[in-house]
Write a protein that binds this DNA or RNA. Structure first.
Lengths: 241, 241
DNA sequence: CGCTCTATTGAGACTTGTCAATTATGGTGG
DNA sequence: CCACCATAATTGACAAGTCTCAATAGAGCG
């Protein structure tokens, strides 16, 4: 199994990824770096010269306020670039931390630059990947701004189920969810206490189970309906880009 | 004055934009389309074949929930591409509407595709432009999740002042802000009633004035401090991309 | 077998929302 | 130029959702 298989699955859900482009991607990778749970992968503001593809584990993008308030702005599963945007931004506006032990493959910006010079379609696929992040961000803005706490949590769970399904590491009944309630609270902009109460409510309604880092949802459509989840933002349409 | 001048100012704040690339951009534009206030520019889910650059007016990206709740996920000022991400996504996850009368220059995706084939550095600048949107989104997630209502409103105002300053249409004392309180509420995930109270609070503390669609902030640094505003997310660093 | 981190529970406070009415503002036709 | 109208802004009283603080219970780990 190649280090880019999961990324290819993710991209292949949106367009054809020719073999030569896969090869070019593989050639751009350098080493694979392991991280321990809680370890910092990227610190806000520091100049980056590589971007990193997650191949195993769970990664969070975290923004901190000076008084300690913290907000997770995205959670990454295997097959996601956790900081492809650093190729353009050079300095990130957030930290990147490993939630669980994780392995990340490095793609030096120099190699990515060469890809933009020789592989226009692959470039567009990578660009697409960052715009998918953007679509995810917008959905999170809606969740934080206009959804109730229960809808917000349920919506995030639906998102996870489908994203894991796309890369073949889960389906719409179950997927990994190795978070603490504190971390879930930081992702939703809630307190851990309230997240706990919301989870109990969702569990008592039989909408989900969540134990030992695994999420189980007996009826995806029901959870999706209750959470006002519409998968359109995942852009799961295979067409030329 | 060329239609891309404001965009060039925006990009030039982050990297050098050579004359030949400016020329390539100009060549990719087709017509300029005027919109009336309230008019829809792009409808969610419809397949797009052009992207649009805003040259005058104010534009909002709006997401709607089935029961009428509405969230603005981004506000665009002149010099912004309002839907460059549609070049990759093809179908947007949100509507795009004109808040005020506006003029938009069309860039057919076909021409953008050619740019990705012939102008790698310009391609990276356009890609950068969408990642700046992403950084803005993340800041909005933090505002919605972890900032108080007053901080949220103040933060948005600081963002506006600096963005207008970058394109030369304002400075950190004053800029256009042609929104209703209802629209501001939809951008912040608040109710109009609460936005109104927050505005009075900010006004009474002498932090800002806002009349006739124009925002005036006597002391930017004080508003920024009160709002926990850190301009880093705007990525205002000129370096090779 | 402790120890530490995580999850759970309860009581009360506070921010923000809801509903409904009133006032101000700006544009338009006469 | 004025009266009128629709929209936007403002106000008040009260409800609701979420937070805070503090304590207890549970679970994983050396």
């Amino acid at each position: 199994m190649s280090e880019i298989d999961l990324l290819v699955r993710k991209l292949a859900a949106r367009d054809v990824v020719p073999e030569d482009e896969q090869q070019a991607l593989r050639a751009a990778a350098t080493e694979t770096v392991p991280y321990a749970a809680g370890e910092e992968v990227v610190r806000e503001g520091e100049r980056q010269t590589v971007s990193r593809l997650l191949v195993s584990g769970l990664i969070a993008r975290v923004k901190l306020l000076d008084d300690g308030r913290r907000q997770i702005t995205e959670l990454h599963i295997p097959g996601d670039f956790v900081d492809l945007h650093s190729f353009l931004l050079k300095r990130l506006d957030h930290d990147v931390i490993a939630v669980t032990p994780a392995r990340l493959v490095s793609y030096p910006h120099e190699g990515l630059r060469k890809i933009t010079e020789q592989w226009p379609h692959l470039t567009r696929l990578l660009w697409l990947s960052t715009t998918l992040d953007g679509a995810g961000h917008r959905e999170w803005i809606v969740s934080a701004g206009r959804r109730t706490a229960a809808e917000h949590v349920g919506h995030l769970f639906c998102e996870f189920l489908l994203r894991y399904e796309v890369v073949g590491l889960g389906d719409r009944r179950r997927c990994p969810l190795p978070l603490t309630q504190q971390q879930l609270a930081d992702a939703c902009g809630l307190t851990p206490v309230h997240v706990n109460r919301v989870l109990q409510e969702l569990r008592h309604e039989g909408l989900l189970e969540w134990r030992a880092g695994e999420l189980t949802v007996p009826d995806f459509d029901r959870l999706a309906q209750v959470s006002r989840f519409d998968p359109a933002f995942l852009n799961l349409i295979r067409e030329p880009r």
